[in-house]
Design a protein around this nucleic acid. Structure first.
Lengths: 341, 341
DNA sequence: AGTGGGTGTGTATACGTATACACCCACCGG
DNA sequence: CCGGTGGGTGTATACGTATACACACCCACT
């Protein structure tokens, strides 16, 4: 008896609405998208479409408009709390422009992630996981596909947005040096990770400027478990550092936990600092001293740059640096008394 | 001169490949998708498609196959670390089936999120944020749209997967009661959040069974900041509890932090327990006693149930309960000496 | 030599939408 | 009274892919 309004069949189309309303499909499309349609007709069409539970087919629409309103976002590790916070900001910025986020986790290389995003014909891609020399990114840039690197800088000729790593690194070094620390260790990401590389360079430069000994650097790839092991080795080895800087909060927490497991009091015998100012850093139980990244601003600028490039792919690449700020909490303190033999 | 292999133009299509290979578009499609094609022809087509940087248009494909290979996932709060961990599991399960995840954050109601997912014609939706009586979910179920509720149970007639909340809650109560606690407070989610409701019911039941006084319950909506305020009020009020149970780890951490800010030692003067066993719970600096949810299994079963329903939408609704397990760490201890006047 | 089946290919069509174009009608100014 | 204008609508087409169908072969078997 009639076609079932509630059933398993395929979803209603604009043609179904047209038939029900006694108009052409074109008029339905116009009514739904704000074209010139008689008020009465539009009213009728809207009513029917609501009654039928009509939902426009994004695929069909994108075929003719050649725009999807989707923006790809590639992250390297969702469980690093930095990313969820960043993604919420990104999603908010996109939402304001009626765009949506297509998230891809690129744990094992970004080739697959990019491939999927291209198949979905996203309007552009925001990378937060680009590794120096990523073939995937290079390929996109060569094709003039809209790409923004957020919190990452690669020499590829595309737009980038990052915190002021040199300034942040200098602030950490100044803070620790001011507390008397001289044996400073660093937990870094992989050598190819540009964020890590730039923060590390900033630390090295400042140490050199102040005539302080070089830092011991362990590359853990920002992997939590490896960072815990590295910190444990540092603390139980021959000349333990009096301060450990994690190049993101995730590994700084790892250092904190390694110290706790070993019974090393923080900050009495060990100072720890990080980068990002993730939400947990401000927890009283953790109280991590860290370099805050301007999350909201980074997200906003990333989305803005991307959309500008979508509208005009011939733009020259731009590089934006946003201010970063040291937040001192309770994991850093004066260098402990040396108790050499 | 010639068509630019590297340029800003629209991406190459299967027709472009056909033209270059001197075949029909149909043969290209067959060659790319494993149809019967002469070996030599297939080879030539693959070479050309690689050379042109061809990427199939998912929209066009989905129009004819009426399958997108996309699965919608709705979460309520990405910054609750439970979700990133869960999403990684989900993504892994989907990847094994060559499906992909379309993530939606439903902070302010799930209507908009569902609408977008429907427009994208996802094959099905996994909800981790369904609130009791969600109109959006009810509508989907009525239309027989494939839906799975993970870690949520609503009386809507759809598939659900959840941890064993009653057992978990009983284990927490037994543990605390065994330590001598009698004044137990609970930080709960909103009344409509089914996970919260079921865990709370479990706690109440077990307290009653053991003849213990009723728990004081504060509904914070699983919001971190509100949970901190609530815990602070509990601890500074007239009859402070000796134990606080957070109905997820997020709010348990909030209690921990409130205690730390007030200088209340844990577990000496206050015991704290949570639900989920998020990664941070095992950190030595936090060491949260909590009820572990079987994350990987929940993800696997959710994806499996969803796909079974995609293949056969007429299936009767199924409800799976997976074992949960109490993990005792360092935030719970014996009830402190009563120091009444 | 004729039939049958299998292999490789081309032709044609469908999916659902937006939009260029043509058309009709009512109205208004000259 | 007529040409123009503009609002409202229908017709036709394009987007890129998968696939049903038809067809042209070639080989093997009776």
């Amino acid at each position: 008896m009639g076609k079932p309004p509630v059933g398993a069949g395929r979803p209603p189309t604009s043609v179904d609405i047209a038939r029900a309303a006694g108009t052409s499909q074109a008029t339905v499309s116009r009514a739904l998208n704000g074209g010139r349609v008689a008020a009465a007709t539009r009213e009728r069409i809207l009513a029917i479409s609501r009654e039928l539970g009509y939902t426009p087919n994004a695929a069909a629409r994108s075929m003719v408009t050649s725009r999807t309103g989707l923006v790809g976002v590639v992250v390297s590790d969702l469980t690093n709390p930095f990313y969820p916070e960043f993604l919420e900001e990104i999603a908010a910025c996109l939402g304001a422009r009626r765009q949506h986020m297509l998230l891809q986790n690129a744990a094992g290389g970004d080739e697959d992630a990019v491939e999927l995003l291209l198949q979905q014909r996203v309007d552009g891609i925001v990378f937060t996981a680009a590794v120096e020399g990523s073939a995937a990114v290079a390929g996109l840039v060569a094709r003039r596909f809209p790409v923004v690197l957020a919190n990452r800088v690669v020499d590829a000729g595309c737009d980038t947005v990052e915190g002021d790593h040199p300034a942040g690194a200098a602030a950490v070094v100044d803070h620790l040096a001011g507390l008397g620390h001289r044996r400073i260790a660093v937990l870094a990401g992989l050598p190819g990770a540009s964020t890590s590389a730039r923060r590390l360079a900033g630390i090295r430069d400042r140490l050199a400027e102040r005539g302080l000994p070089e830092a011991r650097v362990v590359e853990t790839g920002f992997d939590y478990d490896r960072a815990v092991r590295a910190a444990t080795e540092l603390l139980t080895g021959p000349h333990p550092p009096t301060a450990i800087v994690g190049l993101n909060d995730q590994v700084a927490f790892a250092a904190l936990n390694a110290a706790a497991a070993l019974g090393v009091p923080v900050p009495a015998r060990l100072s720890v600092a990080g980068f990002d100012d993730v939400r947990q850093a401000s927890w009283p139980t953790l109280g991590l001293t860290t370099v805050r990244q301007p999350l909201a601003a980074m997200a906003a600028r990333s989305v803005a740059l991307l959309n500008e490039r979508v509208d005009d792919p011939s733009l020259a690449p731009r590089h934006e640096v946003l201010p970063a700020e040291l937040v001192v909490r309770s994991t850093t303190g004066p260098r402990p008394e040396a108790r050499e033999p």
